[in-house]
Structures are given as structure tokens and as C-alpha cells.
Design a protein around this nucleic acid. Structure first.
Lengths: 146, 146
DNA sequence: TTAATTTAGGACACGTCTATCTTAAATCAA
DNA sequence: TTGATTTAAGATAGACGTGTCCTAAATTAA
């Protein structure tokens, strides 16, 4: 598994907020229902995203969470780093500490290259592009059953 | 973390066997000492690799484990699939079950492409190439300290 | 003011991965 | 045969990610 469950859920929640009701406060309970994610778990993930400056929230009736800035200015990389940390894009594939050009593992060069391809996908993809794709239909954020 | 600890250890052990004493039975204890991996844990990983047909073993004095076939005929993909399963190369990046061309997630197409780059690296790299690289020096399989 | 709604935060259970330990079985050498 | 060496296999413990629950705090509406 490349991304943790928390990160998968956080990405899907952010995409839901960007595509379903951009700019409006949406209760976490509504998001969890729409995506089929347990409410308590998603609430905890939302808290982390708020503390990382990705989401903002208000309490009380008509409260909820929303993206802290325009979907155009939030990349997948922002969310992955906030929830899973930078390890995915920096760690040695063999787990060797200090692996780098000075003390490379046998795969260092090739792995760095492949990893950059993945990282480029995450840093260059913003939420608004995917939100548009969702609004146009044909793609999904939740398990549709069969 | 892309690969599990077990898989990292299994890869390093296989590379050690391919580069240090190809064809000879090497005690797991020697491998664990050379790589700085706990012996009981590496022994369990070795068992799994034996059952998957990657290693073979003999007990008693001068016993140990060795690669079950030529390093030229073992790819990194063989080892990763044996220890971590096929999920890394098949699963949806957002964790959606059934994600495919029929029910794609918003990232399906791009992710499939990026993942194929990584998979190509693993399927095309054989142990003998990396073993040669290790024997020629300049790269390492263990933590050297500083 | 009162009540309903919703996030905030901590405590707690569960499962999996990581890691260790112990005992049994097999092999070789003296 | 005897003893030493080494893998085989299962039991066990700890760490961490996952998931749930409960109470408190804040906001809104009536």
C-alpha cells in the first residue's frame, strides 16, 4: 500500500469538498456518508488536515469543514505530505538510513528516477482539475457496490 | 513506506547471497550479522522465501540458505510479490475496490501510468546486475554508521 | 435563554506488522 | 553414537495504524 488509509480517506474527502460544494461548510458527517467512511475516523483525519492548514472549520448548526484555499492552489502532494509525511518521496527503497549519492544502495539511482515520476504526478495535480473531472462524471470517489 | 520491512530485509538478504558467496549455503545468522538485521526476524523471512521457491536450505553444520536459481533469473519483482503480494502493482491509489477502466477513480489513468514505470524497474532488474554493482564497490547493503 | 447541531479532543479497543524467544528436527563431524 | 551446528515452526510480546466511543466546547436558531 503506497498511501496509508488515513491519507486515502483525506484525499477522497478533499476531492469531495472540492467537487460537491466548493467553498461551503460541509458537515464531516455528510462527507463520511457520501464516501462510505466511518464518521469518527474521518473526523480525526479532518482535525489533522485543519491543523496542517488544508481545511478550516466552524462549529454549530450549518457548520462543517471546507478547503482552506482554492482547489486550484492545493496539490495532491500537499495532502500526502500533511498526512503521511515526506517519507514516500525521500526514503530509500531498501530502507537504508543515509542512502544518497555519498552512500548509495544498489538501487539508489534508478529508484530516485522512478520516484520522481510519481512525485511529479502528485505535485503537478491540483484538486480543481480532479474536481472538474468528477463533476463531468465517469469517475467516482466511493465504492459503488458492484 | 513503499515496501514492508520484511520485504526490504528479504531484498537485502537476496542481494547479499547473490553478491557475497553465490551458490554456497550461507547461515542465516551470517547474513543477519552482515546486514545488521535481527536473526530471528530474518529467519522467519527466509522461511517464507523458501516456501515461495526463491531460496533453498539445508540444516546442520555447513548448512544455511542459498538462492534457488541463478541470480540472472531472479527479478526484484519476484521477491516483492513473494513477500508483499501483488497489491503494490495493482491497487487503486485511493483504495477504491474495483477501480479500473469500467469504474475509474479520478486518478486511475495517471496512476496506472506512473505505477507501470515503477513496476518496469522491478521486473527488469535482476539480482545479478545489482550483485555485480555491489562487488565492484561504491554501493552498500547495510548501515555503515555515519 | 434554551435546545439542537457540529467540531474538538482524549481515551480506548482491535488488528497487523515487527521483533523476539523457545523448542523441535535435521545434518554433519568426531 | 554423541554432540555441535543450523534451519523449522510455533508461541509470544511490543509498536503502530486503524477504528470506535464519549465528553466538552462552540455556534446557531428558536
Amino acid at each position: 500500500m503506497v498511501l496509508s488509509k488515513s491519507c486515502e480517506y483525506g484525499l477522497r474527502a478533499a476531492l469531495h469538498l472540492a467537487s460537491a460544494a466548493p467553498g461551503a461548510y460541509t458537515p464531516i458527517r455528510d462527507v463520511s456518508a457520501a464516501l462510505g467512511i466511518s464518521y469518527p475516523f474521518l473526523a480525526k483525519i479532518a482535525q489533522a488536515m485543519i491543523q496542517q492548514g488544508l481545511l478550516e472549520s466552524t462549529r454549530g448548526p450549518h457548520g462543517g469543514v471546507r478547503l482552506a484555499r482554492s482547489p486550484r492552489r492545493i496539490t495532491l502532494d500537499d495532502i500526502v505530505r500533511a498526512l503521511d509525511g515526506p517519507a514516500l518521496f525521500e526514503a530509500c527503497v531498501l530502507g537504508l538510513p543515509g542512502c544518497g549519492t555519498r552512500q548509495p544502495c544498489p538501487l539508489h539511482e534508478q529508484w530516485t528516477l522512478a520516484r520522481q515520476q510519481v512525485q511529479a504526478l502528485f505535485t503537478q495535480t491540483t484538486l480543481d482539475v480532479l474536481a472538474t473531472r468528477i463533476q463531468e462524471g465517469g469517475v467516482r470517489l466511493a465504492d459503488l457496490g458492484s
